[in-house]
């Protein structure tokens, strides 16, 4: 049986705008991936623990509140602490381009801003998970 790509879609922080997260979850499913959806208000600790227990290939974080510079790096740090730095971490939401560089330096593989086609995210995942 072929191993499906497993993706954890999580919303760290407190914002409740999950339209984007749900659309991307569906798009990934329709592309044949297994998506674990953990819903709103997730702490970095919860996200990382879930990523490990669920043995995911990718963690996709969505945030619209502006707390990304605080919360995204926490996720990558914790993954590293748990020895799971091979998990691909990507982010999306309302994130100013000026922050992309900082986030990437903290181990976020890619940031997808508003208006990104779901296809672009899917292609990125397929390409980078295969490389692993």
């Amino acid at each position: 049986m072929d191993r499906k790509i497993r993706v954890l879609v999580a919303k760290p922080g407190l914002d409740g705008h999950d339209r984007g997260a749900k659309v991307i979850a569906r798009a990934l499913r329709d592309d044949g991936m297994e998506v674990i959806y953990t819903g709103l208000r997730q702490t970095p600790e919860q996200i990382v623990q879930a990523a490990i227990q669920e043995d995911v290939d990718v963690v996709a974080l969505s945030i619209l509140s502006g707390a990304h510079n605080h919360l995204f790096p926490r996720v990558t740090e914790l993954l590293k602490e748990k020895g799971a730095e091979d998990v691909l971490v990507i982010g999306g939401g309302v994130i100013p381009e000026a922050d992309y560089g900082f986030l990437m330096s903290k181990g976020i593989a890619a940031v997808f801003g508003p208006g990104t086609p779901t296809k672009a995210t899917i292609d990125f995942i397929r390409e980078h998970v295969r490389q692993k």
Binding site: L14, D15, T43, S65, G66, A67, N69
Partner: peptide
Amino acid sequence: DLPTQIGYDSDHPLSQGEVGKV
């Protein structure tokens, strides 16, 4: 801001990074 909207004080652990943002 979101902590206020969800009834958390600014020093609640879940408020970290969110205080005064939106």
